[in-house]
Simulated scan of single mutants.
Amino acid sequence: MITCDFAILPVGCDTSGCKDYVSAAVQVIKDSGLNFQLTGMGTQIEAENLKELYEVICKAQEAVFEVGAGRVYTVIKIDDRRDVKNRTLNKKIETVEKMLD
């Protein structure tokens, strides 16, 4: 399982608000059927392979352009762990939470 944390940031827009851009990008991710978690600073997503992951991020970035951004800055962090099966976003959180008890 590949997990990814990413953010797509519109640059040079007339307003400091990003909700229109974020909602367009998140709709693409939602429509993809991949598991994701929206956070206050970005989006986390799970994919079976890099091709699937990059395809969704590419479409999400295009959606931000379609809303009207003339330039976007995209930050992507990927954890491609192959030594453990089913290492989902939730499993990562559970592991740390167990250590805190």
Score class of each variant (00 low, 15 high):
G33Y: 14
A60L: 05
D83F: 04
A69R: 02
Q44C: 09
V96F: 15
I8W: 04
L34T: 10
F65Q: 01
T15V: 09
D80A: 15
T3Q: 10
E62Y: 10
R81N: 10
I57R: 06
V56T: 12
F6R: 02
V22P: 01
T43M: 07
I8Q: 11
I2Q: 05
S16D: 12
G17I: 13
V96H: 02
E52G: 00
T88N: 02
E48V: 00
A69P: 01
S32F: 05
G70D: 05
K85T: 10
T95K: 11
E62K: 15
K51C: 04
K77Q: 13
L53Y: 02
R82W: 05
E48K: 01
M41V: 06
T15D: 05
D79M: 09
D20K: 15
V72T: 15
I29Y: 02
I57Y: 07
L100I: 14
T39Y: 04
E62Q: 15
Y21P: 02
T3A: 01
G12Q: 10
F36L: 15
Y21E: 00
V72A: 10
I93S: 00
G70H: 05
V72H: 07
K59I: 02
Y54A: 03
Q27F: 04
K77E: 04
Y54I: 10
N86G: 03
K19S: 13
Y73T: 05
E48G: 10
D101G: 06
M99E: 11
A69H: 04
P10I: 06
N49Q: 01
F36R: 06
L38Y: 13
T43N: 00
I57W: 12
I29F: 00
Q44R: 06
V26G: 12
M1A: 09
E55H: 12
L9N: 09
